[in-house]
Design a protein around this nucleic acid. Structure first.
Length: 117
RNA sequence: AGGAUGGGCCGGGCCGCCGCUGGGUAACCAGAGGAAAGUCCGGGCUCCGCAGGGGAUGAUGCCGGGUAACACCCGGGCGCUUCAUUACGAAGUGACAGCCAGUGCCGCAGAAAAGAUACCGCCAUUGAAAAAUGGUAAGGGUGAAAAGGCGAGGUAAGAGCUCACCGGGCCGGUCGGUAACGUCGGCCGCAAGGUAAACCUCAUCAGGAGCAAGAUCAAGCAGUGGAUGGGUGCCCUGCCCGAUAUCCACGGGUAGAUCGCUUAUGAUUCCGCCGGUAACAGCGGGACCAGAUAGAUGGCGGCCGUAAACAGAACCCGGCUUACCGGCCCGUCCUUUUU
RNA sequence: GGCGCCGUACCCAAGAGGCUAAGGGAGUGGAUUGCAAAUCCAUGAUUCAGCGGUUCGAGUCCGCUCGGCGCCU
């Protein structure tokens, strides 16, 4: 699988976000971040990052979003397909390594196998 | 060499791998800032039928120039502050029009706060004294501010009452300067404080709203009641439209796409020449330089010095203001060392 | 992205150039009560979000900055 993150692999419309947040199949959380996901009925997974209102200035917000997109891009071949995943970030200063630990923690707590049944 | 201070400039680079956005069939090419920020001013652009007249309101406010325009920039004048003084000055800074057009305000204190007044005091007269009457505005005291300052003459004591110097006002010059203003000469003893970031006056400028403007397509829904007026998001006027109409209120529906939007010919940018003290303008040549829409520049490794501060375009420009690691250059001052 | 409004004690707030910055609630201390509630009395702003300017004097007027809230598709 390509380690890409093209436009079709990202959640883009307001309706998509509303659908996932309204009735998520999976929730998990850790310090500074939260994950919600819902099966999308597609072959591929889709991904998005969103930030709470009080998260820093524009540069900090963009940086945090980029870092999480990068982590997803590098690890998505290990994730189950067919899910819309949204990560919500709360205010806090983390570097790339710490974000990576956050993401693996979120995935481990999510328990995709449970949700399938 | 070190330190302090003022001003200006720069705002990481290179290589490899994995990714993102735009253009292109593709190879490939391009891809955030000096502040992109705050949204404080000024424009372009779009819509409101026209952007007319008057008022209200707001803004600006020494003079000249620059500019599309400005509250910006440049040059000059004047005032203030600091430094330096033999002197020429140097640097910084100023919402820098008008309180003899009018009105308001100036708490407390003080005798008196504005066409004023006399508490203490000083002097004269009366009186045994206390004190009274008159003169006075030098001195004391109050206050942010007390009706030019200081010295001499003068006087009963005093006072621009008189005089010199300084300050101020008015008038004038075949004076310098486009002008603000300066300068010189003459006259006036100088009759009235401060505050317009108080109302206001004068002059100049401004119609309103903003790309979520505005245009098109698609999807979807349910009407009901009311008014005669509505059309510029301050008002009047003028003008235009109007009962198959228009507007208002309540209720219902939508939350998608495309254009605007950036392959752009521009108040663009780079280089050269030339005019100007300068801001800037003119001419010639070259370049085409982000265009996202859950919102594109990141991650990892290596090197250069350890790569970091403030910080991310959202229609586009010109300014102002604010934030900022580190480095470089220039001016001024201080200390130390060497010649 | 654009437009607008607000900031005064722990909370709600009045004051709109002048003497010591109203008032209510809550809190604290006291009185009252066997104990409590209610009631009564007392009590706090080294300065009005911060910085600078105008003024003799600023919470008030004028700039800049910070924070909060609302509206526009």
């Amino acid at each position: 699988m390509r380690r890409s993150l093209t436009r079709s692999e990202r959640l883009r419309s307001k309706a998509d976000f509303a659908r996932v947040f309204d009735k998520p199949d999976i929730r998990s959380a850790c310090r500074g971040a939260k994950l919600v996901a819902k099966r999308n009925g597609l072959e591929t997974g889709r991904f998005a990052v969103t930030l709470v209102r009080k998260f820093g200035n524009a540069v900090q917000r963009n940086y945090a979003r980029r870092v999480f997109k990068e982590i997803y891009r590098n690890t998505k071949q290990d994730l189950p397909t067919g899910y819309d995943i949204i990560v919500v970030l709360y205010s806090g200063d983390f570097d790339y390594r710490e974000r990576e630990q956050q993401f693996t923690k979120l995935i481990r707590r999510a328990d995709f196998a449970e949700a399938k049944n």
